[in-house]
Amino acid sequence: MGPIGIFDSGYGGLTVFREIMRKLPQYDYVYLGDNARVPYGTRSFDTVYAYTKECVEKLFAMDCHLVVLACNTASAKALRTIQQRDLPKQAELRKVLGVIRPTTEVIGHYTETRHVGILATPGTVKSMSYPIEIRKFYPDISVFQQACPLWVPLVENGELDTPGTAYFVEREVNRLLQQSPRIDTVVLACTHYPLLYPLIRQFLPEHIGLLSQGELVAASLADYLERHPEVQKLCTTGGSTRFYTTDNAAGFEERAGIFYGQPIQAGEVTALLT
């Protein structure tokens, strides 16, 4: 038995982890951020797969039987390969989940016009993961995507409410809406974007719904554990949390609190590929 592992390329997954903790506070958790190799969004599929696989195996070594990829890029570029190629080789029961499916399998409940917008990193947009996954559940929904290449660096540099950030948020929102006047639901398909929620909301018409992934992923995880008691019984319930980064722990702690909503203490994991 062991904790539930939460993985992200950096800080963004903490917005998802925060909601998971609110929904399921009874479990033990280990969070690992690969800050030394961020960003993932601009890297190739093979590179993202290699980095993600290595971090997942690190969490397995920490006795995590269940790992959640709280990262859209890792979920888009690495999850399927890990599930199909690597997990069958594990001697023990191991499961890896992502953040895309929990969003796409419920999106149909939120849209009436069946026109949905996706705001994401260039890597997630290029992967076409959201259109592909949404089509599996809701073939009648039309999906429109807009890449927002500057939003993550702006968030990570604390530029949340500056005129420059407002300019780039308004620009990408308008580019998305120009693709279809019938969009009535927009998904924030990057875990950094909830920190820009008030600004994004400001530039969206009132009738358009805006969804963050954290609550959807937390609800999906709770449902998964209920449906899979063989996994649930392997997850310890002490209510503890541990945080690790592949970069400098002090630097990670300084920014992580912004995403997690409260101060944290972190350790360093350095035995990873460069």
Rank of each mutant, 00 (worst) to 15 (best):
P3N: 04
P3T: 05
I6S: 02
I6P: 01
G10F: 00
Y11R: 01
G12P: 01
G13I: 03
T15H: 03
V16R: 01
F17G: 00
R18I: 07
R18F: 05
I20N: 01
Y29I: 10
V30M: 06
D34A: 08
R37C: 04
V38S: 04
F45W: 10
D46F: 05
T47K: 06
Y49K: 01
A50R: 11
Y51C: 02
T52F: 02
E54G: 07
C55S: 14
F60W: 12
M62S: 09
V67T: 10
V68N: 02
L69N: 02
A70H: 11
K77F: 03
L79W: 03
L79I: 07
R80I: 13
R80P: 04
R80T: 15
T81K: 15
A91Y: 04
L93D: 12
R94T: 07
R94K: 15
V96Q: 00
G98T: 02
T103Y: 02
T103D: 00
E105C: 15
E105W: 04
H109S: 14
Y110M: 08
T113Y: 03
T113C: 05
T113K: 11
H115R: 10
H115Y: 14
G117R: 02
L119I: 15
T121I: 09
G123V: 03
T124S: 12
K126D: 10
K126F: 09
S127Q: 05
M128G: 12
M128E: 15
M128L: 11
Y130E: 04
R135W: 08
K136P: 07
Y138G: 03
P139E: 07
I141V: 14
V143F: 05
F144C: 06
Q145E: 13
A147F: 06
L150P: 04
L150T: 13
W151K: 00
V152F: 11
P153I: 10
L160W: 15
D161I: 13
G164M: 13
E170P: 02
E172Y: 14
R175M: 13
L177N: 13
Q179D: 08
S180K: 14
I183K: 00
D184L: 07
V186E: 00
C190Q: 04
H192Q: 08
H207N: 09
L210A: 08
L210H: 05
G214Q: 06
G214I: 04
A219H: 12
S220M: 03
A222T: 08
P229T: 11
L234S: 05
T236A: 09
T237V: 10
T237G: 06
G238D: 13
S240A: 12
Y244K: 09
T245M: 12
A249E: 13
A250W: 07
F252C: 12
F252D: 01
E254K: 14
I258D: 01
Y260N: 07
Y260R: 07
Y260Q: 12
I264Q: 06
A266P: 01
T274R: 13
